[in-house]
Amino acid sequence: MSLLNVSDLHASVVTDDGPQPILKGLTLEVKPGEVHAIMGPNGSGKSTLANVLSGRPGYIVDSGTATLNGQGLLELEPFERAQLGLFLAFQYPVEIPGVSNMEFLKASIDSLARARGEEQPNTATFMKQVRELAGSLDLDPAFLKRGVNEGFSGGEKKRNEIMQLLLLQPKLALLDETDSGLDIDALKVVAEGVNRYRSAENGVVLITHYQRLLDYIVPDFVHVLSNGKIIESGDKSLALELEAKGYAWLT
């Protein structure tokens, strides 16, 4: 059974000039244990896919379906999608002064536990786990007391996203250009975190501009998105070919 199943998805972004169609019949299936990379030129709809699946306001689903473990996603509120096991690593993580990282993470893990009918973790154990995770991603544990992403560098924000991924253990991770703005050392840390997350039970959709990330997170499938549709699928060699030739030969 597929983990994520997106079928003939059409979606528009809301603009001042009215809805602009972006996704024009996108179909994608991710099975447990698979990593799918989605590549494509600017404006092809990569981030729109991540946003529509996670329920960001400002998008309209025109037609099509998307399910996670067989449950429909598109009618749900963002928090309900997260409670089903969907996780979006943001391209631009938001700064929230006044809400500490630790408080945010605890609120998140408690909400997810409640939704699954599980016991909420003990605070002391939880804090220890978070500190250890932070350390393993080269994040100073002192940052946990600071506001969410407040004053973080671009690299710290992305590592914080990966820390949340490892902590919340979703069923499906959507990584929206998590590699953008990272230097090579930070890229390795982030990739190592994603690889630690990978398992036979979960899935990863990796949205990226560059082949570079795929040197560190080896995908099972590579898809090329263009004008709102997947126009080519293949294995890792497709990414290398794109790197060599650009997107023009496909579009």
Binding site: R56, F79, R81, A82, Q83, G98, V99, A107, S108, S111
Partner: peptide, 27 residues
Amino acid sequence: DALFYLTSRGIDRTAAEALLSQGFLRQ
């Protein structure tokens, strides 16, 4: 944006709004 960020982590809308307003004052 902040509301979406919190809710995308499974926190329901009411709780997320409460966290954000508390954070605003706590500063």
